[in-house]
Design a protein around this nucleic acid. Structure first.
Length: 480
RNA sequence: CGGGGUGUGGCGCAGUCCGGUUUAGCGCGCCUGCUUUGGGAGCAGGAAGUCGGAGGUUCGAAUCCUCUCACCCCGACCA
């Protein structure tokens, strides 16, 4: 390929963009901040959707679809919500050539349209819970955009549940956070820290927000998924009440939760290298590429014939593969091409291998080759290798996060750490918004979350800034 | 919204300061042919641009002037 990838240590931001473009994941569109998701990128999203959708169904959820356009009056019903979202909303004012009576918001999230509907569906405690998820596109008019990480339009899923009591809604909020954790770690091979957002960082309209935070290779944090306990806020705003078993009228309790195409950004930034994308096998639509090598036409015929045994072996193990028999490129070009696109495993076959009745296996994560793999065991061997790669990516990312997580108790040292090595910093915080704001202003580091993990939380201590009592450490970091 | 930058074949750029041998050039890519093929092939031939848009100055504008549009990067805001 003509275009090269800018190395990470030279310009991380450009490296990221280079990966997205060169791996053919996405392209710029004519509209600022909007992106075109190319087949390679969309394939990752489809894999993510399939895995998540199954997990949602397994936890009792159903899919539905609500409209993209929301009446302005709906948006304005929950005070905190409208304040949080109005500035970044796109609004439709003309329809059919006429100025609309009521302006229509293109959804920045669907709480309002969904809760206005729930008002119709919920009469009795017997109607609860309602466990609905929708796969949709979202519009948020961001000032500054970056492919996958922050785009004006993005794809996501949003779960919206209604319950008859607070405990159940809170349980749901946590259950879905656990689903996200499992998905991130098992599929994206992305280790995450679960925790609670501070008041300043929570979702507009929530009682509280819990999240998963992951560390990228530049040591910055990326919020990878959120789950909100909304209490009765939206039920009150949209008058969603029901009769409980005692015959009393009560407002419903809510949760909402979502992950977006931003996860593709997380995947890229967590695992890829200066050669290109590195896909976790479980999210790779094509897990293996076969590169046949030949010199003459006769050799080509022999090698391709030989490949049939390999493809059979792969099909036997249900491993999706591609055979790259393109004539116009030399093997070296093909190697680079597929490496750039992140295909986890490559099989190289040429006359030398045929002579030994074997193949060469190459793994993308370590860039290492294994020679003399007997052809009859290819499927089995590749299958094992894919598992190894999946595990290695996770272990590598976890090791990296641990190596770049520091406990700091002195504010000067804290500032030095943020400016110097960066990473996650575990420090004590008293819980006051003033101290939180001061730290953000001084260092640009924010509280990513108050971790649930007791080990990260540690014992009691003194706030970095004001020295007041702190219940435990919180995670600070610069973030995307 | 503030600061910086860029718009020239599909992509990346040179030319712009000092208008005129520029028939607008180079690299990559593309097409054809031959030789190649175990880490991004070589040679030969070929197709493709009217210089973001509008107006102006001039005998003459990619180049000067005015206006305008778009995108990118850095900040404030955010999944």
């Amino acid at each position: 390929m003509a275009q090269k990838i800018t190395p990470r240590d030279k310009d991380y931001s450009r490296w990221y963009t280079d990966i997205v473009l060169n791996a053919k994941l996405a392209d710029y569109s004519p509209v600022k901040g909007c992106m075109i998701i190319r087949p390679n990128g969309y394939a990752i999203w489809e894999k993510m959707q399939a895995a998540l959708d199954k997990m949602f169904k397994d936890t009792g959820h159903e899919n539905a679809y609500f409209p993209i356009m929301i009446p302005e009056s709906f948006m304005k019903k929950e005070a905190e919500h409208v304040e949080g979202f109005a500035p970044e909303c796109a609004i439709v004012t003309i329809g059919g050539g006429k100025t609309l009576e009521e302006r229509l918001y293109l959804r920045p999230t669907s709480e309002t349209i969904i809760w206005s509907t729930y008002a119709k569906w919920i009469q009795s405690y017997r109607d609860l819970p309602i466990l609905i998820n929708q796969w949709a596109n979202i519009i948020r008019w961001e000032m500054r955009t970056r492919l996958f990480l922050r785009t004006t339009e993005f794809l996501w899923q949003e779960g919206h549940t209604a319950h008859s009591n607070a405990a159940e809604a809170e349980e749901e909020t946590m259950r879905m956070l656990d689903v996200y954790e499992t998905f991130a770690e098992e599929f994206i091979a992305l280790p995450v820290i679960k925790g609670k957002k501070t008041e300043a960082e929570k979702f507009a309209g929530a009682i509280y927000t819990v999240c998963i935070e992951a560390m990228m290779q530049d040591k910055k944090a990326l919020q990878s998924g959120t789950s909100h306990y909304l209490g009765q806020n939206f039920a009150k705003a949209f008058d969603v009440n029901f009769l409980n078993s005692k015959g009393e009228r009560e407002f419903a309790y809510a949760s909402s939760w979502g992950v977006s195409t931003r996860l593709i950004g997380a995947l890229i930034m967590a695992h890829s290298d200066d050669r290109g994308l590195v896909l976790p096998p479980k999210l790779a639509a094509t897990k293996v590429v076969i590169v046949p090598i030949w010199k003459s036409d006769e050799e080509k015929a022999t090698v391709l014939k030989y490949c049939e045994a390999i493809t059979l072996s792969l099909k036997d193990k249900v491993i999706p593969f591609k055979l790259d028999d393109r004539d116009q490129f030399k093997p070296g070009y093909k190697f680079s091409d597929w490496e750039m696109q992140g295909i986890p495993v490559r099989i190289e076959v040429g006359p030398k291998d045929i002579a030994k009745n074997a193949v060469v296996l190459f793994r993308r994560d370590t860039m290492k080759k294994e020679f003399d793999i007997p052809v009859e065991s290819v499927g089995e061997k590749v299958s094992e290798l894919l598992d190894l790669i999946q595990k290695n990516l996770f272990d590598r990312a976890l090791k990296f996060r641990k190596e770049n997580t520091f406990e700091v108790d002195d504010y000067e040292k804290f500032k030095e750490t943020v400016d110097g090595p960066g990473g996650f910093i575990l420090s004590h915080w008293c819980g006051s918004p003033e101290c939180e704001t001061k730290i953000k202003k001084d260092t640009k580091a924010t509280i990513r979350c108050i971790p649930f993990d007791e080990e990260l939380r540690g014992s009691k201590g003194k706030c970095l800034v004001c020295d007041k009592e702190s219940e435990g450490r919180v995670v600070f970091s610069k973030a995307y």
